[in-house]
Write a protein that binds this DNA or RNA. Structure first.
Lengths: 210, 210
DNA sequence: GTACATTTCACCTATATATGTGATTGAATG
DNA sequence: CATTCAATCACATATATAGGTGAAATGTAC
């Protein structure tokens, strides 16, 4: 039996969802509320498997409700429910531990399917939402393939710079003279188009040379 | 009409998929191949809407095939097909521009649904895959909540340090004396437990203070 | 109203860093 | 075999940075 809590301010939709879900074999609606004001208590008392959470609600809204619940409970699946598939809310919700993100226009059969998926550990998302997430995902991990043609020794020196080593320490670590370290660093600055240690470090981080 | 290309080394599965998809109203299989050796030509010639791509194939495998196609063509939807839902392949595929990732055990009806979603710009994923992606997603964006209790002015100074500004430049930017900049920086070093500019910069990047 | 943190500035000194100008060796490239 | 590049070292100088000590003005919190 999948136990469901519903948070939705629109009375018609709240009633409709309750009827649909509670009337379906294998599902039980434990409660339906118009805001998250008592969500901590309600989640504790009803121990739902899945929470259907509207985002736009007066009072404590869905995103805040999500955060409140996640502070205490990382078990319950939380499906965000919204009219738009706007990026900002999607990412904030997903970063705060939402398990899925579905649109209100999702047809009833799909909705029940998603609830079931969520209750068994899946992450239901409408395809358009998933596409946005993936796009974001691929943007994040661009390997920033800037190749500055650093030589082997130069790369080593840069590693030490990033670790915060002084020229003297680097010389000791690499068993070379401090002047040699210096000349490597001069080369590095040329190649990275910088002219100080901290700029080189920053560039190393930004371009993921480290 | 959704035009499909199939890459799958197992002859039975390849035939089965072809029959299923080609036999469905609205879908047409333009070709089915046992490896990606000629994928550049095939994609150019058949101009598919969706590619079903097995990951484990002898010769040029699915991940390599994906990369090859994406070098030329960012339009076609590519659905990765695999027996496991192992993390490594999932993320490598998604980072390289795959549009979805589905398991071979996906039932035929679902598969067709996913193909249709993919052809219209969606990103179909089985719920378990989506869950893994989301988990990764929330791990990536941990705000690295290290709070070093930097004051407002100290934060500003740190921003400038990260940009590679010298003390003198920071003083000019902030309309304060260089000695003041120094004293802020001294405080910053105390709070971050470092003792040089480049260490501070590195820490700022690592802990996402910037 | 006192304790505390923030922001501001000053002065001194030692060390680190940046820049310039060489030079030698060895390996790789053509 | 000449050229180029990487790696090594040297010396000189100017500027930047780090560390120490102190102090005044402001605002906040208890």
């Amino acid at each position: 039996m999948v136990k469901v809590l519903i948070y939705e301010d629109n009375p018609q939709l709240r009633e409709g969802l309750t009827m649909l879900i509670d009337g379906t074999e294998g599902f039980q609606v434990m409660g339906a509320f118009k805001n998250c004001n008592n969500i901590t208590y309600e989640v504790g008392a009803y121990k739902p498997n899945v929470i259907l959470m509207d985002i736009d609600m007066p009072g404590i809204n869905g995103l805040e409700g999500l955060k409140i619940v996640r502070k205490q409970n990382t078990e319950v699946s939380i499906l965000m429910l919204t009219v738009f598939d706007d990026n900002k809310n999607i990412f904030e919700a997903l970063q705060n531990g939402a398990n899925g993100y579905i649109l209100k226009k999702t047809p009833p059969a799909k909705l029940l399917e998603y609830l079931l998926e969520a209750s068994t550990g899946g992450a239901p998302m409408t395809a358009t939402v998933a596409a946005q997430v993936l796009k974001m995902f691929s943007l994040i991990n661009i390997p920033a393939n800037n190749d500055y043609h650093l030589s082997g020794r130069e790369k080593q020196v840069l590693q030490f710079l990033v670790k915060g080593y002084s020229y003297k320490m680097i010389a000791a670590e690499m068993f070379i003279a401090m002047d040699t370290v210096r000349s490597h660093i001069k080369k590095i600055y040329e190649k990275l188009h910088v002219n100080s240690k901290s700029e080189a470090v920053a560039k190393a981080f930004r371009d993921r040379i480290v």
